[in-house]
């Protein structure tokens, strides 16, 4: 994980900085196994194998980077290129100290790097009542806002999210954070909205497959946690199936047999689509769900309307068009990054 330490990162790639509690979001582990992730004891820089190469810098909770003379940090190297700082607060613990350190951090950042979004994850809120959750959020917000106003800072970009690993709230929060950093997000959303209109979809998401974060969604309906959850779990199932049945290189004899009589065609021509595609019908026959891989990192997942499953051939044609559009969108973004770096 240290390979990124010496290699300078090209500009234009959004970087996320994660401080406070180590996050379990990027590791697909059951809650019980987080017992074995030893506490973060040093700075870790992980470059996610993801569509835009976000960086998660996992800071040791106990190090105060601004106040600690024992650690000499190159501030520009750390903060120069990041788009957002995520600060995790443990809601089930005494958080006053964490809030104090967060305040110090915000004040420092506001002076030198005011563009950085500060995203506060109030974590482990499962097991707390709804009222208590809101109380904690209000309390933390006030403590931060008061401190900032005392220092003469108004309208600092500080946002709050209530999260837990026991549902999808942590992924949703990450999605929101990342969407703010995507250039021309509006254009992506428009493509998905169009797709929903032409295919009569209820909801469509563009997923980063490895993190289950959604990069964009259509703007037709209201935001809806339930739709996001089922689509995200659908991606999970597909990843699992792919691992179980897609991981071994098939033998030459197998291929020869499949391409011989009575088919007489290379496998490439026997399939309708070279990318992964999937569909699922719920038992009540309402709202089928479809998935279509866009590239190595991205997948389109949509909740359809009743009766659409029979119309898959037409739907697939429309999806093909949108997938092509998406591919071009990201090609252009990549080129811009390259020019920006030079």
């Amino acid at each position: 994980p240290d390979s990124t330490a010496t290699v300078p990162q090209p500009r234009g790639k959004p970087r996320l900085l994660l401080m406070g509690q180590r996050s379990v979001v990027f590791h697909k582990l059951p809650p019980s196994e987080t017992l074995f992730l030893e506490s973060t004891a040093r700075i870790q820089k992980d470059s996610l194998n993801s569509f835009m190469e976000f960086q998660v810098w996992d800071f040791p909770g106990q190090i105060d980077i601004f106040d600690n003379p024992n650690f000499a940090f190159d501030m520009d190297a750390i903060f120069g290129e990041i788009g957002a700082l995520i600060w995790v607060i443990d809601a089930q613990d005494d958080y006053l100290e964490a809030v104090r350190r967060l305040n110090t951090t915000i004040l420092h950042l506001q002076r030198s790097y005011p563009h950085i979004n500060i995203e506060v994850f109030i974590h482990k809120v499962d097991g707390l009542s709804d009222d208590y959750r809101l109380d904690i959020q209000r309390d933390i917000t006030i403590r931060i806002q008061d401190e900032l106003s005392d220092q003469g800072i108004e309208n600092a970009p500080v946002n709050f999210h209530l999260t837990s690993i026991y549902n999808h709230s942590i992924f949703e929060a990450f999605s929101k954070v990342i969407q703010k950093l995507i250039p021309r997000l509006g254009q992506l959303e428009a493509m998905l909205t169009n797709l929903c209109r032409t295919c009569r979809f209820e909801k469509a998401y563009l997923f980063d497959v490895n993190t289950k974060i959604y990069i964009a969604t259509d703007s037709t309906g209201p935001e809806d946690m339930a739709s996001y959850e089922i689509c995200s779990d659908f991606v999970d199932v597909i990843i699992d199936f792919t691992e179980v049945y897609g991981s071994w290189p098939r033998s030459r004899e197998w291929r020869a047999r499949l391409e011989g009589a009575p088919w007489h065609q290379p496998l490439e021509q026997q399939v309708a689509c070279e990318w992964a595609e999937s569909g699922m019908v719920l038992a009540d026959a309402r709202r089928p769900i479809m998935l279509r891989e866009v590239d190595r990192f991205l997948a389109l997942v949509a909740i359809m309307k009743e009766g659409s499953y029979e119309k898959m051939p037409q739907i697939n044609m429309n999806v093909d068009v949108v997938v092509k559009g998406l591919t071009e969108f990201f090609e252009i973004t990549k080129q811009k990054e390259v020019t920006g770096a030079g």
Binding site: Y245, G246, L267, V271, A276, E277, V281, A283, A285
Partner: peptide, 18 residues
């Protein structure tokens, strides 16, 4: 305990389908 899905299809390009 109710039935939840009736149909699940997945085609992974030229590798497999299920």
């Amino acid at each position: 305990n109710a039935e939840q899905f009736s149909e699940f299809e997945y085609k992974m390009g030229t590798t497999f389908s299920m």
